[in-house]
Each structure stands twice: as C-alpha cells, then as structure tokens.
C-alpha cells in the first residue's frame, strides 16, 4: 500500500494563552512580556519555541511549551497592569495536530474552504475543517491545525481519512 498523504500527529505538549487587548496600544507591552514580536494581520510570529498567532484585531493566541503557560499568563497580566485587557491560560481547551509531509496541503484542501495554497509562509488562517472551526499555520515540513478539544476525535478522524494512501489530489 502506498504511503498516507501526510503524517497526522496529535500535539500534546502545547500551552496556549488567549490574549485580548487593543493591539495598537498594547502591542509593545505584549511583545515585551512574551518575548515574541506582534504578528501582522492574519499571520504568526515566532521566537524560539513561542509563537504569537493573530486571531483578530484585538485577540492573539500565544502558543508555547505547556510548562511555561502559568508563568507567562501571570507575566502578561502583570505587564498589562490596569490597562483594559484579558490574558487567560487556555492550554486545556484545544486539540492540536501536526500534518506533515509533501502532500499535507492536499489533506487540508479536502477539509477547508480556505485557499491555503496561497497562504503566506507565516500565515495564520482561521476557517473550518468540515463541520468544525479550526486554525491553521505552517510548521517545518507541514502544518499545525488546532480545534476545540471536545471534537478532537472528530478532527483526527477527518485528517486521517483525508490522508488515506493514494488519494492525493494531483491530476490523474
């Protein structure tokens, strides 16, 4: 049997912090507190093992090693001081998958209406995978897809189904 289109792996070690703030006013505060530059609209900025994902014009998602989440949340809250803002440790809220391999894009193309082929290298796209919400960005050799934890089994089933051997989207 041919190989699957991509390796689907559930990522268990990701911490996540939801940040809501006026990014224009507090961007520097956030960047300094978490050590990652503020990403441009619909993109991801990365420094070492931390990434800041642009979720909306007043929301970021900091993805970092799970053990650092509690301290990073506290650091952000301290840095914000009395400024109107929100920083929440939501490390348990999502299921995350890596989709790695030369045909990883084909797997996502079967599930997401977004034009992921033309997503920039540092792009962050929120869309849907079949019937559930998801967020997608690139990693070395493939993509990361996040969705809500309650539908983790559903997402895994979708991704594995879409990656079945021999089902690449190349013209026949």
């Amino acid at each position: 049997m041919a190989e699957a289109l991509a390796r689907i792996t559930q990522l268990q070690d990701l911490g996540m912090i939801q940040i809501r703030a006026d990014l224009a006013a507090l961007g520097d505060v956030i960047a300094k507190a978490v050590g990652v530059a503020i990403p441009a609209q619909t993109s991801v900025s990365t420094n070492g093992n931390r990434s800041l994902c642009w979720m909306s014009h007043d929301e970021l998602l900091l993805v970092l090693p799970k053990p650092e989440a509690v301290a990073a949340t506290a650091a952000l809250t301290d840095a914000f001081g009395s400024s109107h803002s929100l920083a929440l440790d939501v490390s348990d809220m999502r299921a995350a998958f890596s989709i790695d391999g030369a045909k990883a894009l084909h797997v996502l193309q079967k599930l997401c209406p977004a034009d992921l082929a033309s997503m920039p290298q540092d792009g962050m796209r929120r869309t849907r995978a079949a019937q559930v919400a998801c967020g997608i960005w690139r990693r070395e050799g493939g993509y990361v897809l996040i969705g809500f934890r309650s539908v983790g089994d559903y997402l895994r089933g979708l991704l594995q189904g879409a990656a079945r051997p021999g089902t690449q989207l190349d013209p026949r």
Binding site: S56, H57, T127
Partner: peptide, 8 residues
C-alpha cells in the same frame, strides 16, 4: 459575522 474566522 466572520464566524469561522476572526469572529467579528
């Protein structure tokens, strides 16, 4: 609403 997106 950009429900499956930025939520706005």
């Amino acid at each position: 609403r950009h429900a499956y997106g930025c939520g706005k």
